[in-house]
Simulated scan of single mutants.
Amino acid sequence: VLCGPHGSGQTVKAANQLIVAINIQACAEAVIFLEKSGVDLPAALDVLSGGLAGSTVLTRKKDNFTHRDFKPGFRIDLHHKDMGIVTDAARTVGAALPVTTLVTTLVASLRAQGDGSLDHSALLRGVERLSGHTTEN
């Protein structure tokens, strides 16, 4: 799909990575909120998947979240690189991306903690650490 002049494809790819990272972070926060509230996580994620909160990210990463399975798919290291591309491009065009900036920092934090080789759904690990939340999985 032609999205504009030369370079537009790279910009669309960067926007995709921005949306995916923010969506994974939102899902990770919801998982911890649900678990700390004593809610049946698999049931709750099924309910959420069927409503407006549903997304391809939630559908594809649901098992990663419930089973804490962070085998590499799309690695944190690669998402970190892509978030750098988003941040640089946004700065160049003068676009303020406050939530993206925060999620970029959280991705960088995971890398600094040695989680760079894990799947990007491991953003859940960062929320767990911030919440003092551990699971048996």
Rank of each mutant, 00 (worst) to 15 (best):
T92Y: 00
T56E: 00
A28P: 09
G114D: 07
A28H: 14
S109M: 03
T59H: 11
V93A: 10
D88M: 07
K62M: 08
F33S: 13
G50Y: 03
A112R: 02
I19R: 09
V86T: 13
F70H: 01
R75H: 05
S109F: 01
T101R: 07
Q113H: 13
S49H: 08
G114R: 02
L48N: 12
G38K: 02
Q10D: 12
K36T: 12
E136T: 15
H6T: 13
S109P: 00
P98C: 09
I22W: 00
S117P: 10
A53P: 09
S8Y: 02
V86E: 07
Q17K: 04
V127K: 11
L34K: 07
A90D: 00
V103E: 02
V1P: 10
G126S: 08
L106K: 12
L123K: 05
F74Q: 07
A21E: 05
G84Y: 11
D77F: 02
L130Y: 03
I76C: 11
A96I: 06
T66V: 10
L110R: 09
T87S: 13
I22H: 13
L123F: 00
D119F: 01
E136A: 15
E128M: 15
F74C: 12
R75L: 03
T134I: 07
A44Y: 07
A43N: 09
D40E: 12
L34D: 10
V31E: 06
K61D: 04
S121E: 00
I76K: 09
H120E: 07
D46R: 11
S121D: 07
L48D: 07
C27V: 15
G132Q: 03
G51P: 10
H67P: 08
P72K: 11
S131V: 03
L78Q: 08
V1K: 04
A30S: 08
T101M: 12
V93E: 02
S49E: 08
H133F: 10
S117M: 05
L41K: 13
P98R: 01
P98F: 02
H80C: 13
L52K: 04
T11Q: 05
G73E: 04
V20Y: 03
L45P: 11
K62P: 10
Q113R: 14
L106F: 09
D40K: 06
L118M: 12
V127G: 08
K81Q: 02
